[in-house]
């Protein structure tokens, strides 16, 4: 438990100097606040930008943050030093995962300001659960990448798929059909309705399969490459 907290604390200290992670976390909440408050377009539903950016945020930030942190630690050899210092791989991954989840939720909290206060708990619950799937996918990418550059390039492909498919699906039927197979689309649908009743059986199965796939790929990558 102590080691999880040490890794978490180390990462918190690093946040204020790690511009790339900081930018990832701040970008969408700031964009949401700007768009919701400054841009008024006739015919656009309430909280349109919050819901659209939330689906992108959940598919992008936890994944890329998790992947880049792990890949950087591998590249700079700090991960090896931690492993030699009695920190178990699961403790490290839990510490980093908790950190990414926490900073993501701070961003989600900022985005939720624009919503009806009664919907905020539901919004945060959906965002928090979606982020867990993205964190598992990010850990998988981070473990698989040899260094930051390869992790970022692998992560970008998955991130674009997860983040942009739901948005493109709003404007194109073809993309909408493809988007049904990614969990971020169902996150967006839940946020549209602000109720679990929006989640149909097939949607729930797809989210479960996505989560299972992320965890399975993570286990395969970890067994194959470990944290070395």
């Amino acid at each position: 438990m102590n080691n999880i907290f040490v890794v978490f604390k180390k990462q918190i200290k690093d946040t204020f100097t790690n511009k790339s992670v900081l930018l990832q976390v701040i970008l969408y909440p700031v964009m949401t606040l700007i768009m919701e408050n400054l841009i008024r377009t006739e015919g656009i539903p309430d909280h349109f930008y919050t819901k659209m950016f939330s689906a992108m945020y959940v598919g992008m930030t936890p994944l890329i943050s998790m992947a880049s942190i792990i890949a950087e630690e591998k590249e700079k050899n700090t991960l090896r030093v931690l492993m030699m210092s009695n920190v178990k791989p699961w403790q490290y991954l839990t510490g980093i995962g908790l950190y990414v989840w926490m900073i993501f939720m701070i961003g989600a909290g900022m985005m939720s300001i624009t919503l009806n206060p009664a919907n905020i708990p539901f919004y945060l619950l959906v965002m928090g659960l979606g982020a867990i799937v993205s964190i598992a996918a990010g850990a998988c990418v981070g473990i698989n990448g040899k260094n930051q550059m390869s992790a970022t390039s692998q992560g970008t492909v998955i991130m674009l798929l997860l983040s942009f498919l739901p948005m493109l699906g709003m404007f194109n039927d073809g993309f909408a059909k493809a988007a049904r197979f990614v969990y971020t689309q169902h996150v967006r649908e839940l946020l549209d309705e602000m109720s679990f009743s929006a989640l149909k059986l097939d949607g729930a199965i797809i989210v479960a399969v996505n989560a299972l796939l992320a965890v399975t790929l993570f286990i395969i990558a970890y067994r194959k490459k470990g944290l070395e």
Binding site: N2, V6, K9, K10, D14, N18, K76, S85, V87
Partner: peptide
């Protein structure tokens, strides 16, 4: 294997805590 963005003190603090 050092945390480049952390100070020397904070680098050691991580391992002092462990």
């Amino acid at each position: 294997g050092v945390y480049e963005r952390l100070s020397c003190y904070d680098n050691l603090k991580v391992f002092a805590d462990i």
